[in-house]
Design a protein around this nucleic acid. Sequence first.
DNA 1: CTGAAAGCGCTTACAG
DNA 2: CTGAAAGCGCTTACAG
Lengths: 370, 370
Amino acid sequence: MGASIRDVADAAGVSPTTVSHVLSGNRPVSPALTARVKAAMLQLGYAPMRSARNLALGRTQLIGLLVPDISNAFFAELTKGVERVASGQEYNVVIGNTGFDRDRGLMHLEMIRSRAVDGVIYSAGSPFTDSEIARAIGGLPLVLVDEEVPGSTAPILVSDNRDGGRLAAEHLLALGHHNALLLTATANLLSSQHRIEGFLGAWQRVSGSSATTADGGFTADGGQAATRAHIDQFLDGTRTAIFAANDEMALGALRELRAHGLAVPGQVSVMGFDDIPSARNTVPGLTTVHQDVAALGERAASVLMTILSTGERPAESRVTLPVQLVVRESTGVANQRADDAAPDQDAPPDRAGSTSSRARARITEGVVHA
Amino acid sequence: MGASIRDVADAAGVSPTTVSHVLSGNRPVSPALTARVKAAMLQLGYAPMRSARNLALGRTQLIGLLVPDISNAFFAELTKGVERVASGQEYNVVIGNTGFDRDRGLMHLEMIRSRAVDGVIYSAGSPFTDSEIARAIGGLPLVLVDEEVPGSTAPILVSDNRDGGRLAAEHLLALGHHNALLLTATANLLSSQHRIEGFLGAWQRVSGSSATTADGGFTADGGQAATRAHIDQFLDGTRTAIFAANDEMALGALRELRAHGLAVPGQVSVMGFDDIPSARNTVPGLTTVHQDVAALGERAASVLMTILSTGERPAESRVTLPVQLVVRESTGVANQRADDAAPDQDAPPDRAGSTSSRARARITEGVVHA
DNA sequence: CTGAAAGCGCTTACAG
DNA sequence: CTGAAAGCGCTTACAG
C-alpha cells in the first residue's frame, strides 16, 4: 500500500524509469527486467498513486457530471449512461448535485476551476449565467446535455423537445381536445420552454383551441398545486386536457384530479414528458413522450471522451435525439362539455378545494391504446 | 487558468509560501501582502491546481461511492444523501456503478487501490469476496451501507431488515393470510436474506402457515417471472399473499397478477420493501416497508467524514436505522379459499399462462388503509 | 534496452 | 510576519 515506485525499483534492482515503463508500456523493456519488476510489484502490493500521476500528466482521468437532482429518475438514468461509457474508457465520474441551489452549484464550479476534473458534462440548467459558467470552466472541455446554456458554444445533446411537444398536441387534438392546461417548469429551463413551444405550435394551428400555462416547477408537488389552482375548469368541463412538460408534474396532476373525483381519461386527459419508470406503474398508465435518456448520457460521454483524446471539437456541435409518443391509458376522447369552452380564457387562480357537485357526474369515454 | 502559484507570487512581489498561506490561512499574513496577493489572484484568474495539492497533502478530497445500479431509485436516493453531506464538507463523490458486473467492479476497486479517493462507501453487495475487497481497500477508510460484507469489520449502516420482514409478516397474518410466496434476491444479498428471515420468524410462529421462496433477482422482471412460475396456486386460491424483498419485484408481481386477471388485494395481497416512488404511484398503491434511504446515505457519509477527519473509527461500528410499515391498497383480508391450502407444499414450476377459468371468479374483500 | 535527473504545482518544516 | 528549499510520487526528454 505505502509502496512507491522507488520501493519497487529497489526491490527489482532497476531504476524507477524502468518500473514506470513496464507499467505504461511507453517504451520496450527486456523480458528479464519486466519479470523482475512485476514480481516486485506483486510482492509489495504496489499500485501507482494517482495523485502523482495526475500532477505529472496534467490530467486526472476524472470527468464531472453536474445535475440538479440525482434522485430524479431522469438524471439517475443519465448518470448511468455517462458512467457506463466513461468507465469503459478508464475515466471515473464525479457527481455534482446542485439541488437547484446556487451555493452548492458554485462549489462544484470551484471544483472545476481547480482542474479536479478533465472535462465536464453539464446538465444542471440552474441559476448560472453563461459567463459564470464560462469563467469557471475556462478552457475545460464541456458538453451540455438536456438543458441549453444560452450563448454557450459548447457541444450539446438534447432530445427533440419541440417535436415531443408537437406530438403531444397532435395526440390531444386528434382526441378532440380544445382547451388544455400546460404545466411548465420554473423560469429559465429551455427544455421545458421548447416542449411548450412545440405543443403550442401545433395546438394553435387549430382554430378555437386554447391553452393556459401554469408553473409546476418540474416537481410532482408543483404539478399538483398548479392543477389545484385551475381545478374549477376541469370540474365544470370547460377544460379537458393537461400536458405537463415532465412526468413528475403529470403524476402530481393525476393525484389532484383523483382527489377531486375527476376521471382520467373520462373527464380529463393527462400527458407527461420523459417516460420515467413511474409512468408505466401508475394507473391509469401515463401517456407521455419517451426520451432515450441513457443514450443521451452515453453519447454525451462519448463526445466528451473524444474531445479529451483528440483535443478537437466534434464536427456536429449539436445532436438532437428523436423522441416518441407512448400512448397509455391516461388520454382519451374529449367529453362534450369541452365544446362549450370559451377560447383563450384564463382560469381563475387558487380556487383550490372547490368541488362543485354539478361537475361530478362522470363521463366515461373510450380509451386509445398504443 | 494556466496561472500557477509562482505566477501569483511574482505578480504580487511575494514568495509562493506567502501565497499559499493567504490561501490556506495556515499562518498569519500581513494585511498589506494579503491584499496584494488577492489582487494578483483575481487578476490572473488563479485557482490552485488540485492535483498538486493532492500530491503534497496525500489526500484527494474525494470519496468513492460504489453501487450496483445508480438508476435504481434506492441507490439514486442513497447517492443524493451521500453527496449532500460530502459536499457540505468540501468533499466530492466519485460514483462507481458496478452493474453487478465483476470486471467493472474490479476496475473500481483498482481506482481505490491507486488512492484516487480518500475513503469509500460501499453498497455494491456484488460478486466480491471479503478478501478481494480488503486487498483493494488496504487501509483506506471504508463504510458499508445496506449490504453487509461477510467477515468485514468495517462500520456498517443498515435498515432494520429483519424487523421490516417481521412487520410484513404480522401485517399479512393479521389479515388472515396463511400461505405466502416470498420473492428473494439472487444468492448472497444479505439484506434480502434478513428480510426473509425476519418474515419467516414471525410467520412460522403461527401454526398452519406456509411459505415458499422464489428468486426474483431484485428486479421487476425477475419478480414477474417468479410470480408467473407460481401462478397456479394464486389462481386456485391456495395461496393469497406475496412478500417481495424489494419493491421492484413487488411491482413485477403486480403486473403478472393483473395479466392473469387476479384482483389485488381481492384475491392476492402484495407487499414490497423499500418504499420507492413508484410504490405510491402504482394502483393499487403498494403496501410496503419504508426505509429512510436518504438518511442511510447521509449517515454513511457522516461516519466516513468523521473517520477521515479524526482518523478514528466510530464508537458504534454498526448502526441500524428503523423501518416502518406503510399500508396502502395492495393488501387486504385473505379470501376464504386460502384455508384449504395444504401447508408447506411447493408450487409446480413454470405453468405460465395457464389461466384456468375455475379460478377467475373475483372475490372482492375489504381493504385496510393506513 | 536502460538510467540519472528535471519537472509537474502545491505544502510545510526550517531558518530568520 | 516572511522566504528559500525540500519533498510529495509520478513521467519523460535527454544521454548513453
